[in-house]
Simulated scan of single mutants.
Amino acid sequence: MNATDQHPLVAAYLDAVARETAELPAERRAELLADLREHIEVSGADGDDQVRAVLAELGEPRTVAASALAEEAPAGSVSAPAPGRTKLTAILLGVSGVLLLLNPYVGAAALIVALVLLWGAPQWESRQKLIGTATGVALPVAVFLGALLGDASRIGPMEVLLILVFSLGVPTLGAVLLLRAVRR
């Protein structure tokens, strides 16, 4: 460890890069940090202004980390989601409403599996996952609220038709939105 490593600006910079590259394999992160240290040391900067200039030349820690992560992405397995898993998630989510009406146990199992797959998938952002979840659980919540608040003896053909359209339409809409998000 040399005097440059002990400079508070250098230490803060390297800590920030280390935090931002937490997703990199440990060996690659250590190599990146060693390269940055070496560059700073070779620069011979010894005053605050000189150290700031060298760090500015290297770039913001977030930018350095993004570059390192982008270089690592082709070798990593996180970049491309499995198309079969994406389709399975969308299909299970889309049919969960109808399955819940036909057989509550099978429908509940399909919905739970779809939600587990959805929330474990890297290809969707949190907002898209929330939309998928909302469209998937809309039918069970509506049926539950209807059972609590309504009189089941007053369900006529129009109500049955609305329930069928709702149970097919809303989860299917969520599945279509998820598939469109993946294609973008």
Rank of each mutant, 00 (worst) to 15 (best):
A90P: 00
G97Y: 01
E60A: 14
Q50P: 09
R37S: 09
L32G: 00
E72I: 06
V42A: 08
L102V: 15
L88E: 09
Q123F: 06
I40T: 05
L14C: 03
E71F: 11
R29P: 02
E60P: 01
R28W: 06
A18D: 08
G120R: 15
E41N: 13
L111R: 00
E27Y: 10
G76W: 14
L88H: 07
E38L: 13
S79I: 14
G107Y: 02
A110R: 01
L100W: 03
D49R: 08
P74K: 12
L102A: 15
S67R: 12
L117S: 05
L58M: 10
Q123W: 11
A90G: 02
R127W: 07
V54G: 00
E23C: 12
Q50G: 12
D46I: 14
L101F: 08
L111N: 01
P74D: 13
T63V: 14
L33E: 05
T21E: 05
E125K: 05
L130H: 06
V54D: 01
A80G: 14
G120Y: 12
L55M: 09
L115S: 02
L58S: 02
Q123V: 11
V95L: 15
L115Y: 04
V98E: 10
G94H: 01
L102P: 06
A75P: 04
L14H: 02
I40D: 00
L69S: 03
D46T: 15
A26N: 08
E71M: 09
V42F: 12
E125A: 12
P81M: 14
T86R: 04
L69M: 12
L130G: 08
T133F: 10
E125Y: 00
E72Q: 13
G94S: 09
T86F: 05
L102H: 07
L102F: 12
V106L: 15
R19T: 09
T133V: 05
L93S: 02
A73G: 06
S96D: 03
A30K: 08
R127A: 09
E27F: 13
L33D: 02
E23I: 14
A16T: 04
L69Y: 06
L101W: 07
S67N: 09
L32V: 05
P61G: 03
G97P: 01
V64F: 03
I112F: 13
Y105T: 11
G120D: 14
A56F: 10
P122G: 10
V116C: 11
D15C: 03
A110T: 04
S67K: 09
V51E: 07
V98W: 12
L33K: 02
A66M: 12
A109T: 11
P25Y: 15
R127E: 08
P74M: 14
P25W: 14
A73C: 07
T133R: 02
A108I: 06
A70P: 01
L69R: 04
A22V: 13
Y105H: 07
E71A: 10
T133Y: 06
G97K: 00
L117G: 03
T133H: 05
S43P: 02
G120T: 15
I131A: 00
L102T: 12
I91D: 02
E31H: 04
V42S: 07
A75S: 11
A90Q: 00
R37T: 07
I91T: 13
Y105K: 08
S43C: 08
V42P: 02
A66W: 04
H39G: 08
L99R: 00
G47W: 06
A53Y: 11
E125S: 10
L111K: 03
A75T: 10
